[in-house]
Design a protein around this nucleic acid. Sequence first.
DNA 1: CGATATTTTGACCCGGCTCAACCCAAGTGG
DNA 2: CCACTTGGGTTGAGCCGGGTCAAAATATCG
Lengths: 248, 248
Amino acid sequence: MMTPSLRKQHERCADCGIRNRAVCSYCGPQELGLLDTIKFYRSYDPGQEIVAAGEQTDFLGSVVEGVVSLSKTMPDGRRQMVGLMFASDFVGRPMRPIAPYDAVAVTPVRLCLFNRGRFERLLKDTPVLEKRLLEMTLDELDAARDWMLLLGRKSAREKIASFLAILARRAASADNVDADDGFFFDLPLTREQMADYLGLTIETVSRQITALKKDGVVEFPDARRCRVPDFVALLDAAGEDSDGGMID
Amino acid sequence: MMTPSLRKQHERCADCGIRNRAVCSYCGPQELGLLDTIKFYRSYDPGQEIVAAGEQTDFLGSVVEGVVSLSKTMPDGRRQMVGLMFASDFVGRPMRPIAPYDAVAVTPVRLCLFNRGRFERLLKDTPVLEKRLLEMTLDELDAARDWMLLLGRKSAREKIASFLAILARRAASADNVDADDGFFFDLPLTREQMADYLGLTIETVSRQITALKKDGVVEFPDARRCRVPDFVALLDAAGEDSDGGMID
DNA sequence: CGATATTTTGACCCGGCTCAACCCAAGTGG
DNA sequence: CCACTTGGGTTGAGCCGGGTCAAAATATCG
């Protein structure tokens, strides 16, 4: 059930790969030491459920590696992804023990977790933690609102292009490669998951990707690897302003 | 430009109508006194712009009365509403001085505002303020995610029904009337604004409202006033589970 | 009362959904 | 080694929900 290879059981917070991007990034050595004593790790295989909608969650924490999807399902089975969490993103909502959506591991995932009660007590006593959490929540809200524009007003082609632009941007800032010849990155999602992300069907996702390939906006060495030769052209296909893309 | 009737210039925080729902709701008498000295009010007419996307905002605060819409516009003019703020909701993002969307007064609006720098300093020194703000931001994120499901997966009819259900719920809890014979409420939005909220066109909004009337799910004494005789029927039309509606 | 904005209604069309077939790579077991 | 399955992914044909364009009906307001 759990991949042993992911089981690096305990890691010092100070040496952690997400140490300066996660909730804990404003913590000093002292608070970090405290976190060290109460955190624990848990690993999940692709497709494995982390929490189900409506369920009580007794833990919350950070994505250390891998990708987690959050999604809502209607009574008749229609599904919409509402969150896509990468390394250093925070999963779980303090003060709200009931999960309003499913969280599922998209890739192999490792989480750094805290007991809910303990974390909430710690939050109260650690302003820097709370401040960082507020910041991250505001960022997520911004992302959610961009996403709403995508879902409500963009065409299928624009949706696909927008999604690829998000991944390209992520890849560029993560690998901090300054793209001598376009951006390369892997699609972490299946076509079905992309459809759930974008409010489309698999077929439409596939067709629009084909169309973008045909137009030379993107290249796919294989179905899961993508190259963007001209980022501005991609933004253009996404219906976005050609500027606000890469500046941080 | 500003409606004089809205100009009750200064009100003691302790007597404020939104005192126990807004950001300040966890503040004690001491913190409240401090807020009293630095807050100021500003009023807006329907349709008046509060901040424009891309603009620097030097203030932020609470909606005291009225309704404010937040919306994003694409280069070609397509618009999507991404937030709808009522009395006690917080407007503006601490630590992010550039507004990523337009904020517009939908009805006559009165805001209780703070200078950005002063508020951010206050936040740092007042954990209860920050805690409340975090809570409110998490709630907004939840609302945004419900909204994403609506935009991505619901039919036009379901979208309209969902929106009316939100308003009915608000009305029921605000007027704390236990609906002896259905819920009554006013639509704060024009058809165009509803269309922007729901990712539809005006025409489709109009048609689907007509259809819901014809099916007896809702009644419209006039174009802006609505009665819901059977809330469960409305939830059903919204494609939602018939339970999770009214419980808080 | 005209004049302007908002809402409704109608006719038509198209983008994306549905249904169905097919392709391809990776297992799996005989 | 090959036959068979399984899970993505792609492609095609046809349809329909919601968009577009146009006009009528209904407020709202000097």
